[in-house]
Design a protein around this nucleic acid. Structure first.
Length: 242
DNA sequence: AATGACCTCAACCGCAGAACC
DNA sequence: AGGTTCTGCGGTTGAGGTCAT
């Protein structure tokens, strides 16, 4: 499952590491510490580039590395951390002792991302009627409306206009949550979220869904009370939905 | 048994920022 | 202050393994 070892024109070896190479690298790092990667290969007697040595050490030889399957706890933690930090795998890895950023990244791309995709598919399949097929265009229209509104009221220039992302992986979670939120609102029997009025209250901006419901972008929940927001809240809500 | 599609994960690549001179 | 080198990060690749036909 590893690349076949090859030697390039500069005599630098690439591809899979042999156990002899591992021993040399391990021995050198244990003696001198994991630094000066550029000089390490020649000092340790390895025909590798420094980068390759560093990677091998960090992802395979470093003491304390955990091997084997991920536990449910680890998976939950990765989900949460990914929601917080996105694809900043080094950040995620600092919270999971014994796991490397590379390993977590691979695990995410190979398993967890697909699980999320499957979940969102299966959660929408039983009630396809609830998912509006034109939600993206609705959202786009609302965005344009909102952008125009902002530029009129707050003097926001055109270059700062918002854009709708409907397919990039980084926004999938938010978009899924948005779909879910719209469904949830439909289910509540209060009507069509997109047709609910955004209202003015004096000089302050308020949004009132139907006069008795508020939507929290943080937890994706509706609650039965009027919520009047500041402009910043309004921006935050809108951006978090996109 | 053969073979092709898909999956896994170690390793590589390119870039950005930090550190050094 | 500016150029060079080093380090670290995230995205991508590709060879071997596994599964389905």
């Amino acid at each position: 499952m590893v690349r076949a070892p090859i030697v390039d024109k500069d005599g630098v070896k690439r591809g899979a590491w042999s156990s002899e190479e591992d021993d040399k690298l391990m021995g050198y790092v244990q003696k001198h510490g994991p630094r000066k990667w550029r000089q390490l290969p020649s000092l340790a007697g390895l025909a590798r580039c420094g980068k390759s040595c560093r990677l091998r050490w960090l992802n395979y030889l470093r003491p304390g590395l955990k091997k084997g399957n991920y536990t449910d706890e680890e998976n939950d933690l990765i989900y949460k951390l990914h929601e917080m930090h996105g694809n900043r795998w080094s950040m995620v890895a600092t919270k999971l002792s014994g796991r490397t950023d590379n390993e977590i990244k691979n695990h995410w791309n190979a398993h967890l991302k697909k699980q999320i995709e499957r979940k969102s598919e299966s959660s929408t399949q039983p009630k396809p009627k609830k998912l509006r097929p034109n939600i993206a265009s609705d959202l786009e229209a609302k965005t344009e409306e909102f952008t125009g509104y902002c530029s009129t009221k707050f003097g926001i220039v055109e270059s700062s206009s918002l854009s709708v992302q409907t397919s990039s992986s980084s926004s999938d979670a938010n978009f899924g949550r948005l779909n879910w939120a719209v469904e949830e609102y439909d289910r509540s029997g209060y009507g069509d979220l997109w047709n609910e009025p955004f209202m003015w209250d004096g000089d302050d901006v308020s949004y009132v869904l139907d006069g008795s419901m508020q939507f929290s972008a943080d937890n994706g929940m509706f609650s039965p009370q009027v919520h009047e927001t500041t402009y910043d809240d309004y921006i935050d809500l809108f951006c978090s939905l996109l």
